[in-house]
Simulated assay, not measured.
Amino acid sequence: MSQVEHTDLYRAAWVQAVSALDHWLHREIVSRAIVIINDRPAPRPDRLKAYTVSWATVEDMQNRSIDDVMSEHMTERLGRDSYQKPDRIAEGLQYVTHKKQGQIWREVAQIILPQRTVDEIKQRQTEIADRRNKIAHEADIDHLTGTRRPITAPQTAATIDWIESLGLAIRSVLN
C-alpha cells in the first residue's frame, strides 16, 4: 500500500494553480478575441489581424455563427500554446490588446509589486512555471541528489497567492 506524503499535496496544489492560470488565460483570450471580432469598427490588435484560418473554416462560417466557429478554432489552435511563462503569456495577450510585451509587464508589475522591477516580476513567474514543470515532468526530483526537492505549505500558499495576484493584474491591464 502506498502512502501519500503531505508534500505531495503541496506539489499537486502548485501544479493545479499554474494550470488554472494557463486555463483561465486561454479562455480569457478567446472570449476577448470574439468580442473584438464582433466590434467591427474597432481596430484589431496586430496579432489578431494576422490570425489566419483555413478555407474550410471560412466555409464553416456559412452554416454556423462566426462566434461559434472562431471560438472553436481559436480554442483548438491556442490550446497548443502554454501560458505559464511571462513571454508566452504576453504573446497570448497580444491577440486582445494593442499593448506590447514590455508595456504589459510594466503595468502588471505596477499592480502586483510596484517596488519590484519588471525583470523581478517575470523571474518570479518563470521560477513558478519551472518548478511546476519539474513537479509534473520529473517528479520534482533533484537529479544531483536523487531526492525530491523540498516544498512547504508556506511556499505553496505564496505561489497560489502570487498566481491569483497575477491573474487580477492581467485582468486589470486588459480592461
Rank of each mutant, 00 (worst) to 15 (best):
G146S: 09
L25I: 03
H26E: 04
T75C: 04
H137L: 10
D130Y: 08
G79Q: 02
R64K: 14
N63A: 12
K85N: 07
S82L: 12
D140S: 08
M1I: 04
I128F: 03
H137T: 09
P154S: 11
S165N: 15
L144P: 03
G92W: 02
T117A: 07
Q125G: 07
T7W: 06
A12T: 08
D119I: 08
K100I: 13
T75W: 05
H73S: 10
D161M: 11
T159R: 06
T7S: 12
A17W: 02
I66H: 05
E28F: 14
L78P: 02
L168Q: 13
K99G: 03
L9D: 05
M70F: 09
K100P: 04
W24T: 08
I36M: 08
R40F: 07
Q84Y: 04
P114H: 08
Q101H: 14
D39E: 09
L93S: 00
I111T: 10
G92K: 00
R116E: 15
W162N: 01
I135K: 01
R44Y: 03
T75I: 02
R40A: 09
I128L: 10
H137E: 09
L174G: 02
Q123M: 11
I151Y: 00
R148D: 10
W105K: 06
I104T: 00
A20D: 13
L48G: 01
G167W: 09
R106F: 08
Q110C: 08
K99Y: 14
M70H: 04
E5D: 06
I121D: 02
V4G: 03
Y10Q: 02
R116P: 03
D142V: 09
E91S: 13
V4P: 02
H26M: 05
K99R: 15
V69C: 03
V173K: 01
P45H: 00
P45R: 00
N63K: 15
P45W: 01
Q103N: 14
S2G: 02
V30W: 00
K85Y: 12
N175A: 12
R124M: 13
R40G: 01
H137K: 11
S82V: 07
I141A: 12
R40T: 09
T147V: 11
Q62N: 12
R106Q: 13
R77W: 05
S71Q: 12
E107L: 15
D67S: 14
E120L: 08
Q155C: 07
Q125F: 03
E107C: 07
A158S: 13
E91M: 14
W14H: 06
Q103L: 14
A139W: 13
P43L: 08
I128Q: 00
Q62F: 14
S165Q: 15
Q115M: 10
R132A: 03
H6Y: 07
A139F: 12
T52A: 12
R116I: 04
K134Y: 11
E5A: 06
L9K: 08
M70G: 02
I36S: 03
I36L: 15
S82F: 10
D140T: 06
R116K: 15
Q125I: 07
Q16D: 10
K49M: 10
R106S: 10
I29F: 03
H6V: 04
Q94E: 15
A56G: 07
V118E: 11
G79K: 06
D119F: 04
D46K: 13
I37C: 05
R131V: 05
Q3P: 00
K134P: 00
R64E: 13
D8P: 01
T147M: 12
E127S: 14
R148Y: 03
E127C: 05
G146V: 09
L21V: 12
Q16S: 11
A12I: 07
A129G: 01
